[in-house]
């Protein structure tokens, strides 16, 4: 791909240090994001997807700490920046929106005050110009009568409207990268459709790159160009969006896709993945997915496979695709159903 890369994360490791115990929430995550594109980071709870997002802007909660790796943004390694330098990037070159629009705005300040604050910090706009720009931003994100809205407090707005305000705030300084952490999970589906449409339109108009953190494969299919599937703090598969749905490679990705109850077709029986999502405190030693994988062999349980680039350009972390595979050489990961039942 000849495209310019805006973000290149290499071997990112983030842990939570509780007393003498290290919980490895993100354990060697690497991916690239071409400029102007959207990457989806998908995973279930405890996969480390949100922690990865928080690590980029170093917004981790207290005992969380980046232990190693690089986050290269336009040639700079963000992990090496001072607190002051990262503050200049936050809300300016890289913005973030969060899952809970209901609680993500400060209840004691007006919408206008909160948007103005970003403009003042990064662009030095005064109150009058800030208000003017805030009104422009609110109308950009489709909020009706923005002149009135700037004077309102968050509690006077619905969840969907608050998420629009969050987006307006994130866009205030024309960021090059927008990180959206489950931006529509807390919203109703008709409102989710509005917000996803808005993010797509704005991305097209403003040329932003987007990282979309989600657990919803539907959201991924509709908004992303590339997908990184995370499991147990690691990326297990990375492909472009069409390929990942058409030919998923990792058994986890296959299981995830087979677990989704579809609203557009009838399925008699879902094919769930057996067992439970592992806790970061208690990760399997070999492949993180081995205990739940219908194909797991002794090798999988003992040794962790690496994330390898395949002939078609996709990246997979699974022994099946390596020379060392010690299971059935004819195995077809996509036909997990038969295997799962025979077991």
């Amino acid at each position: 791909m000849s495209q310019e890369t805006i973000l290149d994360i290499k071997d990112l490791r983030t842990s939570f240090l509780v007393e003498d115990f290290e919980v490895k929430a993100v354990d060697g995550v690497s991916f690239k994001l071409p400029k102007g594109k959207t990457i989806g980071i998908v995973g279930e709870s405890g996969s480390g997807k949100s922690i990865t997002a928080m690590s980029i802007l170093q917004l981790l909660d207290k005992p969380g700490k980046i232990m190693g790796g690089e986050i290269n943004f336009k040639g700079k390694d963000l992990t090496k920046l001072s607190e002051k330098e990262i503050q200049n990037i936050r809300g300016n070159e890289i913005s973030m929106i969060f899952q809970e629009p209901m609680t993500s705005l400060n209840p004691v300040y007006t919408i206008g005050q909160q948007i103005r604050e970003t403009l003042k910090v990064h662009q030095g706009l005064n109150k009058q110009n800030g208000t003017k720009k805030a009104i422009e931003l609110l109308s950009l994100v489709g909020i009706p009568s923005p002149e009135q809205r700037v004077k309102q407090y968050p509690h006077e707005l619905s969840g969907g409207m608050r998420q629009r305000v969050m987006i307006a705030m994130a866009l205030a300084c024309n960021p090059e990268l927008l990180i959206a952490d489950e931006p529509t999970t807390a919203l109703d589906v008709t409102i989710q459709a509005q917000i996803l449409e808005l993010i797509k339109d704005l991305q097209k108009d403003l040329g932003m790159s987007v990282i979309m953190i989600t657990h919803d494969m539907g959201v991924v299919a509709e908004t992303c160009d590339y997908v990184a599937v995370m499991y147990g703090g690691k990326v297990v598969e990375y492909q472009d969006v069409k390929s990942i749905f058409k030919s998923p490679k990792h058994p986890y990705t296959v299981g995830l896709l087979n677990s989704i109850p579809r609203h557009d077709t009838d399925v008699d029986e879902l094919e769930p993945i057996k067992g439970n999502v592992p806790s970061p405190k208690d990760m399997p030693v070999g492949c993180r997915f081995a205990p739940r994988c219908p194909f797991a062999t002794e090798l999988c349980e003992k040794e962790l496979p690496s994330l390898d680039t395949q002939a078609d350009g996709s990246e997979v972390r699974c022994w099946v695709y390596t020379d060392r595979w010690d299971g059935d050489p004819e195995v077809n990961v996509r036909e997990s159903k038969r295997t799962a039942e025979s077991e």
């Binding site: 802007l57 917004l59 909660d61 607190e83 503050q87 200049n88 990037i89 936050r90 809300g91 300016n92 913005s95 973030m96 969060f98 809970e100 609680t103 993500s104 705005l105 400060n106 209840p107 004691v108 604050e117 970003t118 910090v121 990064h122 969050m166 705030m169």
Partner: peptide
């Protein structure tokens, strides 16, 4: 300090002092 809007304030690029005194204290 553990509320979501404090994280939002940090994500805007505010200084920690401003986050504490303007965003946290009033609440």
């Amino acid at each position: 300090i553990s509320q979501d809007y404090i994280r939002t304030a940090r994500a805007k690029g505010l200084k920690e002092r401003v986050v504490i005194y303007r965003h946290a204290l009033k609440n």
